[in-house]
Computed example of a mutant assay.
Amino acid sequence: MVEVGLETLHRQNTPEMTEHLGGPEPEQAIVDRHRRYLRLDGGEMLLVRLGADPVDGGCDMGTLVLGDPTLKR
């Protein structure tokens, strides 16, 4: 499995960030959602990054999923 973006999904899985979604997800739900993002057909998952490269001090800030309105959380 490609790990790009998975760490960001874990960081976003806090009570504060998921309050409007019913609370944090279990570990397996995060992994499953990440796999669905990697298989998107008719949409895109964008990783928002501050800085050009994590090695140079950049970091992932969040995600944005575009396109498929049937994609579940």
Score class of each variant (00 low, 15 high):
residue 46 L to N: 06
residue 12 Q to T: 11
residue 36 R to H: 08
residue 3 E to V: 13
residue 1 M to R: 10
residue 41 D to F: 00
residue 57 G to Y: 04
residue 73 R to G: 11
residue 53 D to F: 02
residue 53 D to E: 13
residue 63 T to H: 11
residue 49 R to W: 06
residue 4 V to R: 15
residue 29 A to I: 01
residue 53 D to Q: 07
residue 55 V to H: 07
residue 48 V to I: 15
residue 42 G to Q: 06
residue 17 M to F: 05
residue 22 G to M: 10
residue 7 E to A: 15
residue 44 E to C: 05
residue 65 V to N: 05
residue 9 L to P: 03
residue 62 G to T: 10
residue 43 G to T: 03
residue 46 L to E: 06
residue 35 R to I: 05
residue 17 M to V: 00
residue 29 A to P: 03
residue 33 R to T: 12
residue 21 L to N: 08
residue 36 R to S: 11
residue 7 E to C: 04
residue 28 Q to A: 07
residue 3 E to G: 13
residue 67 G to L: 07
residue 58 G to N: 09
residue 18 T to H: 04
residue 8 T to F: 06
residue 72 K to I: 04
residue 33 R to L: 13
residue 59 C to V: 12
residue 47 L to P: 00
residue 21 L to Q: 07
residue 28 Q to P: 03
residue 27 E to S: 06
residue 24 P to T: 15
residue 26 P to H: 09
residue 39 R to I: 00
residue 51 G to P: 03
residue 11 R to C: 02
residue 51 G to L: 05
residue 38 L to R: 15
residue 71 L to R: 09
residue 70 T to P: 00
residue 40 L to W: 07
residue 14 T to N: 07
residue 17 M to H: 12
residue 71 L to M: 09
residue 45 M to D: 03
residue 8 T to G: 00
residue 56 D to S: 13
residue 34 H to W: 12
residue 45 M to A: 15
residue 47 L to K: 08
residue 30 I to S: 07
residue 22 G to C: 02
residue 47 L to G: 03
residue 21 L to T: 05
residue 2 V to H: 13
residue 1 M to W: 03
residue 2 V to E: 14
residue 18 T to M: 15
residue 63 T to C: 09
residue 1 M to H: 08
residue 17 M to L: 09
residue 44 E to P: 00
residue 5 G to N: 13
residue 72 K to Y: 00
residue 52 A to H: 10
